[in-house]
């Protein structure tokens, strides 16, 4: 008899919008971490809805490893311009040149871990007191214990054993000078929810998510795209394959999957049938059992 049913996607949407507005209200200078991946795109879409018809009251911050797919950067610039948002880019290359990080060496060297330092430097330089991230709790086991409002100390560190209890919709964003917050409006979304919502709202996504032909090498079980950042090693046979990406990150550690899915409908069917998590193709998570937790403690997204 009740006519007040709300579908789960509507509930998630309303919850995220509430968190985005709360972030605007509780902080002086929040920013939105924008990677060009589907989660940050959906988060930006929700931010646009939350403050319409006004503009989104956050700067966008992109931490660029310099190893991004060109499609990602082109998409980012188009997207930010369409929203009329202000984009700030933090370059890992700058941190390397300043000497605040050292490039990893060795066979599986990646700039992924270095991003944390560049992120913290960008936060400090711009004076951001809160960073909105597109992280979801279903992504990874350390993220499952993350709060919506996640406190970081003056060193940008996460202390998972000493998190503030978070009840109802009452978020505590109080902090001392020098500290800051990470805010995760998409905490309760799953990968499937993101895809379904993108289709429902007709959200434009980068072409990398859809099947295309690309030269790849199979390295430690990940299909890496051959590019200026990934060159085939001895004994590796680059092959041309029809692939797509389930997550978009640094080109050196984000694996592709073989797929014919060329539309959102296809992708949704594929995700529904998949038996492997989306981060299964991320080499950065496979470094150790607690790889994500360790990176988060150091200030990772």
């Amino acid at each position: 008899m009740s006519t007040y049913n709300v579908t789960h996607l509507n509930q998630l949407e309303s919850e995220s919008i509430f968190v985005l507005r709360e972030t605007a209200a509780q902080f002086e200078r929040p920013c939105l971490l924008f990677s060009g991946g589907k989660d940050s795109i959906v988060m930006a879409h929700l931010a646009a809805k939350a403050f319409a018809p006004a503009r989104i009251p956050f700067h966008f911050l992109h931490v660029d490893t310099g190893h991004n797919f060109s499609e990602t950067i082109e998409f980012r610039d188009r997207f930010v311009e369409k929203l009329g948002a202000q984009l700030v880019v933090g370059l890992v290359q700058d941190s390397i040149e300043r000497g605040t990080v050292q490039e990893e060496t060795g066979a599986d060297a990646s700039r992924n871990g270095l991003q944390s330092v560049t992120l913290l430097e960008s936060i400090e330089r711009e004076g951001f007191d809160a960073c909105l991230g597109g992280g979801r709790r279903d992504e990874e086991k350390a993220r499952a214990k993350e709060r919506f409002f996640s406190h970081r100390d003056a060193f940008g560190q996460w202390d998972p054993k000493n998190q503030r209890p978070e009840l109802w919709n009452l978020f505590n964003g109080k902090m001392s000078p020098g500290e800051n917050f990470r805010v995760f409006p998409l905490s309760n979304w799953t990968e499937m929810d993101i895809w379904q919502y993108a289709r429902l709202e007709e959200i434009d996504l980068p072409s990398l998510y859809f099947a295309h032909d690309r030269e790849v090498v199979d390295r430690n079980g990940s299909l890496l795209a051959v590019s200026e950042f990934v060159t085939p090693r001895e004994g590796e046979n680059p092959v041309k394959d029809t692939v797509r990406f389930r997550t978009i990150g640094d080109a050196t550690c984000t694996g592709a999957v073989r797929s014919e899915a060329s539309s959102l409908d296809d992708v949704i069917q594929e995700v529904a049938a998949s038996r492997i998590t989306e981060r299964g193709s991320r080499a950065d998570d496979r470094r150790s059992e607690a790889a994500m937790e360790d990176r988060k403690k150091q200030g990772y997204f």
Partner: peptide
């Protein structure tokens, strides 16, 4: 039990949020 300390000590420290869906409900 996702956190390093939880695995080491075999205990659950914090509230963990988990997601699953059936054709009827999330």
């Amino acid at each position: 039990d996702g956190l390093r300390a939880e695995r080491e000590q075999g205990i659950t420290i914090d509230v963990a949020y988990r997601y699953f869906a059936t054709p009827k409900r999330k």
